[in-house]
Nucleic acid binder design. Structure first.
Length: 360
DNA sequence: AAAAACACCAACCGCCTTTGT
DNA sequence: CACAAAGGCGGTTGGTGTTTT
C-alpha cells in the first residue's frame, strides 16, 4: 500500500506555471510569508496547485535573488569539489552558492558539468596512456640491454616480465600489503588542499573539533562540510583508509574511537573518471581509489553494515551508473601492477585476489 | 525544408526526515 | 512512544528549443 498523496491530484493544476499564478503566489508570500504551511497555502490564495508545487516554484524561481544560468568557473570548481567530497547532496552544495538552487545545480551538473569533465578526463587519460606507453618502451629497452649482459639463470624471470601482458597473473596487488609508495604523500597533500577548499567554503577542519568529528560519525552526519579532522591523526586515518581496502568505512578505529566520517565516504564513492579534474588531483594520485565495476551496491551495503537501506546506499548505487564504485581495496590496475613488477623486479609486490564484499 | 537527435530545465514523484499531537 | 502530517531532498520525466543529418 502506497503513501497517501499530499493533495487531491485530480483537482490540482500541473505543468508550467502561468505569470498570473506566479504573481499570486509571490504577492501572497511577500505580504504574509509562507505561513509555515505549504499544503494549506494554495487554498488560501485560490491557486489550484499542490502545496509542494507552490513550495518548489517559490524556492526555485520566485524567491528573491535567484540566479539562473551563467555559472562561473569558480562556481564550477566549487560544485566539483563538493561533489567529490559529499556526492550529490545538492542542497548542501547549493547552500555554498548564494542565489543558486539545488535544482539548478543538479540540472547544471547533469547536463553540462558532468560532460565537460568527462571530456577533459578522457583527453587526459589518453595523454597519460601515451606517456606511460612511452615510459614502458624505454624501460623495456633498458631491461633488454641488461638482459643481454645477464647470466642464463636470469633468463626465465625476465622473459616472463617482458611478456607481462600474457603471463603475469591476473591478480591485483593490494596497497595494504605493499608499502605505500610513490603518490601517497601527494595524495595526502591533496587531501589537505581539499580540506583547505572546504574551509574556504565554510567547513571546519580545526584541531578543536574532535568532538564534532566523533559526533558526526556517530549520528549519521548530514552536513559533512562540518567534519573536523584532528590534525595529528587525519593523515593517519587517510593512510588507514588506503591500507584497509575501504574496510574502515564506518569502522571504529580501536585506538582512537573515531569513526571515519561521511566525508571519506565521498571519496569511496568518488567517480574516478573525474579524478584528475577535481581538486587538482591527477589520475595517478587517485589510483588508490580505482575500482572495478563488479563491486556494486551489495558491497556498499556490506560495508555499511548491510542493513541500512538508507538514501546514501541508493545514492551510491546510482553513482555506479557513471563510473566504477570505490568500495574495495585501493587496487592497482593489472596494467599498473605489471608496471610495478617491471619497475621494481626485485621488490615483493603482494598479489592478492580482489576482495568482494557481499558477493562471495 | 523536414525529421531526428540532442540539450536544457521546470516540474513532478516518491522516499526519508522532522515536527506536532 | 506511536502515529500522522508536512517539509525537504534527490532522481527522473516530459515539454520545448536547438542543432544536426
Amino acid at each position: 500500500m502506497g503513501r497517501a498523496p499530499c493533495c487531491d491530484k485530480a483537482n490540482v493544476k500541473r505543468g508550467p506555471w502561468s505569470p498570473e499564478e506566479d504573481a499570486k503566489l509571490k504577492a501572497y508570500i511577500d505580504h504574509h510569508g509562507t505561513g509555515g504551511n505549504w499544503i494549506a497555502l494554495p487554498q488560501k490564495i485560490g491557486l489550484k496547485r499542490c502545496g509542494k508545487s507552490c513550495r518548489l516554484r517559490w524556492l526555485n524561481y520566485l524567491r528573491p535573488n535567484i540566479k539562473h544560468g551563467g555559472f562561473t568557473e569558480e562556481e564550477d570548481n566549487i560544485i566539483c569539489s563538493l561533489y567529490v567530497s559529499i556526492g550529490s547532496r545538492w542542497s548542501i552544495i547549493a547552500a555554498q552558492l548564494p542565489g543558486r538552487t539545488d535544482n539548478d545545480i543538479k540540472n547544471y551538473w547533469n547536463t553540462k558539468l558532468k560532460k565537460k569533465l568527462l571530456g577533459k578526463q578522457r583527453k587526459e587519460q589518453q595523454d597519460q596512456a601515451r606517456r606511460v606507453s612511452s615510459q614502458l618502451k624505454q624501460e623495456m629497452k633498458r631491461e633488454s640491454e641488461n638482459f643481454m649482459m645477464m647470466e642464463p639463470a636470469g633468463v626465465m624471470n625476465h622473459s616472463s616480465l617482458y611478456n607481462w601482458s600474457a603471463e603475469l597473473p591476473v591478480a591485483v596487488p593490494v596497497l595494504g600489503t605493499a608499502p605505500i609508495q610513490q603518490g601517497s604523500h601527494d595524495l595526502i597533500k591533496d587531501q589537505e588542499s581539499l580540506k583547505n577548499l572546504l574551509v574556504k567554503l565554510g567547513g571546519r577542519f580545526s584541531d578543536d573539533h574532535i568532538q564534532s568529528y566523533t559526533n558526526a560519525a556517530s549520528t549519521n552526519l548530514q552536513y559533512p562540510c562540518d567534519i573536523s579532522f584532528p590534525q595529528d591523526q587525519d593523515h593517519q586515518l587517510y593512510v588507514n583508509l588506503l591500507n584497509s581496502g575501504g574496510e574502515v568505512v564506518n569502522a571504529t578505529n580501536n585506538s582512537t574511537g573515531y569513526q571515519l566520517p561521511n566525508i571519506y565516504q565521498g571519496f569511496e564513492n568518488f567517480p574516478n573518471e573525474y579524478s584528475s579534474e577535481l581538486v587538482g588531483m591527477n589520475p595517478q594520485e587517485l589510483n588508490g581509489f580505482e575500482f572495478d565495476g563488479c563491486y556494486g551496491m551489495e558491497s556498499i551495503e556490506m560495508v555499511n553494515g548491510g542493513s541500512t537501506g538508507t538514501s546514501s546506499t541508493t545514492e551510491s548505487a546510482n553513482w555506479g551508473e557513471m563510473s566504477s564504485l570505490v568500495y574495495s581495496s585501493p587496487l592497482l590496475s593489472d596494467y599498473e601492477a605489471n608496471q610495478q613488477a617491471i619497475m621494481h623486479p626485485h621488490q615483493d609486490i603482494a598479489f592478492e585476489e580482489p576482495r568482494f564484499f557481499g558477493l562471495q
